[in-house]
């Protein structure tokens, strides 16, 4: 039976591994190969140029700016989004006041309603969210400045996406808004599976909400938080950040390169400027950044798993 077992396993693994190699590994290898050429992307002929693209990249101010912004996205967005989501999920599931005759732990009043409302942005495509916010940020007739005017703040009429100091934060706020609901639901599901007796014991010992959160909820939810962290980091470095920057911002990528990110720069080089080889070079840099990000998260997040 031993022989048959391996054949059985191999039989199952061939197809998925083959697909993975073809659609994930192979494009990586191709991209790395093209980054050593002068391929334009518009004609089949190209020549090897060695490390020219890499040298050029290290001298490229826009590349460094986009790297800086991408790193900021990858570091800040997960912290803010996951922190906010944990807080909201805790309030929905655990943070409520104890009501007479009710369960030992429960969420704040109306938590079922909040759970649905928080999830709403998730059903909208990121492209639609970005367009909606582009309208909201309109300094002349957009929702945000109109509200400011309505409450008498006529003097405070920021340019939002038109202001290099605000634009990046305005973009980040949109990403937080559109993704936080998903993590609220994810963490709610995790919290629901934490046995109530642990909370009861903590309450009997006189723990307040803050202590309960840091001593009971967070440690038991750690695995979920860590997965969410990696996932959010990928969103912040990849497709989601591209969509919002491309659709919402000046230029796109501005004003004055204040919102450009690596994925956007890859796209512009490959498809606007006809420099596909240079674009793949930036893509390789992005690969390095993303791998480093994942490695750091895995390393920092390693803890003993708690059984319950």
């Amino acid at each position: 039976m031993q022989h048959g077992k391996y054949r059985f396993i191999v039989g199952f693994l061939t197809v998925p591994l083959g697909l993975y190699a073809l659609f994930v590994i192979w494009p990586f290898i191709q991209s790395i190969y093209y980054s050593f050429t002068d391929w334009t992307g518009l004609s089949p002929d190209f020549a090897m140029v060695g490390f020219d693209n890499y040298e050029r990249m290290l001298d490229d101010d826009i590349f460094w700016k986009s790297l800086q912004h991408s790193l900021l996205f990858a570091l800040l967005l997960p912290v803010v989004t996951i922190g906010l989501a944990l807080f909201l999920a805790f309030m929905i599931n655990v943070g409520g006041r104890r009501r007479r005759g009710g369960p030992v732990i429960s969420g704040v009043r109306g938590s079922a309603f909040y759970k649905i409302v928080y999830f709403f942005p998730q059903v909208l495509s990121i492209a639609i969210v970005a367009l909606l916010f582009a309208f909201a940020y309109n300094p002349d007739s957009g929702a945000i400045n109109s509200v400011l005017r309505a409450v008498g703040l006529d003097g405070v009429q920021p340019l939002w996406l038109g202001d290099p100091d605000l634009a990046l934060w305005a973009v980040m706020a949109v990403l937080v808004w559109s993704t936080v609901g998903f993590f609220v639901v994810l963490f709610s599901a995790g919290m629901a599976s934490i046995p109530a007796d642990l909370y009861e014991a903590a309450l009997l010992d006189g723990a307040n909400r803050v202590t309960t959160f840091f001593r009971v909820t967070l440690p038991l939810l750690w695995d979920t938080v860590q997965s969410g962290w990696v996932y959010m980091g990928i969103l912040a470095l990849g497709a989601e950040s591209f969509a919002v920057v491309q659709i919402m911002t000046t230029g796109p990528g501005g004003p004055d390169y204040s919102t450009t990110v690596m994925v956007l720069y890859v796209y512009q080089k490959a498809f606007r400027d006809g420099q596909a080889a240079y674009a793949t070079t930036i893509g390789v840099a992005l690969l390095v950044v993303t791998l480093a990000f994942a490695a750091v998260v895995m390393k920092l997040g390693r803890r003993e798993r708690l059984e319950y």
């Binding site: 659609f23 994930v24 192979w26 494009p27 990586f28 191709q30 991209s31 093209y34 391929w39 992307g41 004609s43 089949p44 190209f46 990928i234 470095l237 990849g238 497709a239 591209f242 690596m262 994925v263 890859v266 490959a270 596909a276 674009a279 793949t280 893509g283 992005l286 690969l287 993303t290 791998l291 994942a294």
Partner: peptide
């Protein structure tokens, strides 16, 4: 899956 969004599409136009 990391960075597939960034690089996967480049393979589509591989020469």
């Amino acid at each position: 899956l990391i960075s597939v969004p960034a690089m996967g599409f480049l393979s589509a136009c591989a020469s």
